[in-house]
Amino acid sequence: MQTFENAKAGDIVQALAERIIENRAYLSEIDGKIGDGDHGVNMAKGFGLAAERLKDKDASLAEALETLGTVLMTEIGGSMGPLYGVMFTEFAEKIEAVDAIDATAYSRMLHAGLEGIQSIGSAKVGDKTLLDSFVPAVEAFDAAIAAGRSFAEALEALTAAAEAGRDSTRDLVAKIGRASRLGERSLGVLDAGATSCAIILRELSGGARARLR
């Protein structure tokens, strides 16, 4: 059975932060089309802060996720502070005690994060939010495992589903949050949160996959 080591895998979060910072302008541009344009700026601020704290810490994945979650939750504000804050905190909590993370633990982690988001945000799939990336990604992961695929394959399925989910937001009318005021006018553009969520999931899963033993 494939697993990856929790210890020292905090680098994954560093890489994740780099990706978000790289995409700062892009994410704000997307948010600007139907939102207020702060998504990339705030995300980059939060992830950058966390990356700084983690520097040279040799943290485990759980520790790194915990740091990231806490920074987002306590220092960033906006929608993303609480939503991604709770997500990463839940991620961290679920793998805290796991040394070698297997598919089951990974799935448990994903579900906990998802539930965290849903408990404070109360959005549903189809509302044009990050859930449109997240939910199909988790489903694809679980389905792949249930179908007997390997952890690595399931991670690939997860990434692909997250990105398909992100792309699906283009054809959705926003039902929640800022963009929902726009009604039909929100059609035709990606959701900013779904886009950042796809980036996060790709990086996290890619990092895990590269470490599988």
Binding site: A25, D31, I34, D36, D38, V41, A179, R185
Partner: peptide, 29 residues
């Protein structure tokens, strides 16, 4: 936004956004 110094979106020269909020997001119509 100060970080980009660009408009998030453009309003045509003859147009206006009605039902505008206070966060620079497009209005309702």
């Amino acid at each position: 936004m100060p970080q980009t110094r660009r408009h998030n979106f453009e309003i045509g020269p003859e147009d206006m956004e009605v039902g505008m909020g206070i966060h620079g997001e497009p209005g309702v119509t």
